[in-house]
Design a binder for these strands. Structure first.
Length: 102
DNA sequence: TCGGTGACCACTG
DNA sequence: GCAGTGGCCACCG
């Protein structure tokens, strides 16, 4: 069958993203670890890029390991600021202040 | 079948 | 902090 991505992977990633509390952010690697695919953070990003097709999830609360926002997604910064997430500048969040500890 | 690319990360120096 | 290297998986030409 025309498998675009592993359905199970999509489900696991999105259910973890759904657990990120408001005012916190998570990293791709962190999510990868939580679903048992520690070395596969890249696929997490891939899933999130298509997350809108699978429902409404707070994928704006996911940034890379340096705190940088997703390239080519303008909306993300405004969504984060709406939750009072501290920013270092327009492209980076302050991970020290708002990293989801789990 | 291969090489390049990508919302990435860990390790080493 | 930065640069280099290697690893992972899916997609495209």
């Amino acid at each position: 069958m025309g498998r675009i991505l592993d359905e199970n992977l999509i489900y696991e990633v999105l259910s973890v993203v759904d657990e990120i509390p408001e005012g916190k952010v998570a990293t791709y690697g962190q999510i990868a670890r939580l679903i048992g695919r520690e070395k596969n953070a890249r696929l997490v990003g891939r899933v999130l890029s298509m997350a809108e097709f699978y429902g409404r999830y707070p994928c704006h609360r996911v940034v890379n390991h340096a705190g940088r926002l997703a390239p080519g997604w303008k909306e993300q910064r405004e969504l984060l600021e709406a939750e009072d997430i501290p920013m270092k500048n327009t492209m980076y969040v302050n991970l020290k202040m708002c990293l989801w500890d789990e």
